[in-house]
Amino acid sequence: MNWISEWALPKIKTLFGATREVPENLWHKCSNCEQMVFHRDLERNLRVCPHCGHHERMGARQRLECTLDEGWQKIELPKVPADPLKFRDQRRYSDRLRDAQSKSGLDDAVVVGHGTIDGQPAVVAAFEFFFLGGSMGAGVGEALVAAARLAVLQDAPLIVFTASGGARMQEGAVSLMQMPRTVIATQMVKEAGLPFIVVMCDPTTGGVTASFAMLGDIHIAEPGAMIGFAGARVIEQTVREKLPEGFQRAEYLLAHGILDMVVKRGDMKATLAQVISLLRVPEVPVFPALAAPSAASESSAA
């Protein structure tokens, strides 16, 4: 829920500093090791720093692009009432929303696509962190319900890549209700006997973590991703203790039994394909070469 500190501050810095689009900024400074990376090298390396292996945040469309096989399709998401509360803080929420939409070319903070992963059908929803901190309001909730429905309809597993600061405060209790609504989405997928796989990316916090994201059949995270319920600052203020090293990072959650695995971005697609295959394809033909060494030598002799 502290998407401002996670999202708005860096965003403001980007606004006043150089943006990724400007020509002089062809070099990207790794936010971890601070080494310079040529932007095309970074994109080619799936936004993973070639020097230190740090996973930079990735947009939703690029995520679908590198997860689904060529020919995947984006689906139209259902419309929901925008700005249900007529919310205004220092700016109108409706203005913030319009800005985010025009900057990203998206309707809301989730993109849903369907296609195949190494030939196996799948529905993939990816959060767009650069859209209001990936926060979850009615639009995001509805997108996840739509993704679940599509998965059931296509008899395909549902994979969600999360990257969200949590609930979208500007939608008040409407955003809170997206927690049960997205839990229902997971129930629909599971009742249809389909795998629901969550891939937690940096960051996954608040109401997103405390709803559908923690109800996966399989929980995967990207290395170093910040994952938790409460914000680190709030915890520090509440317990007045120093937070342990690596607290709320993917590796910490793995050690605490909350994740199944931490997977590098470059291995993600193959891992997903493997998991889906194991859960969905009860038996595959066994090549003689793998069945028994003696059989293998016979067949090679023949």
């Binding site: 927690m179 049960p180 129930q187 973590t209 709803s211 938790g228 319920f229 409460a230 937070l243």
Partner: peptide, 26 residues
């Protein structure tokens, strides 16, 4: 709200809340 603490996070605060919502719905 739910308690924001180190131990609570380590024991899966988010998962516990999600499962409780799920139990209510089911």
């Amino acid at each position: 709200g739910a308690f924001p603490g180190i131990e609570a996070e380590a024991r899966g605060q988010a998962e516990a809340i999600a499962r409780s919502i799920e139990a209510g719905l089911e």
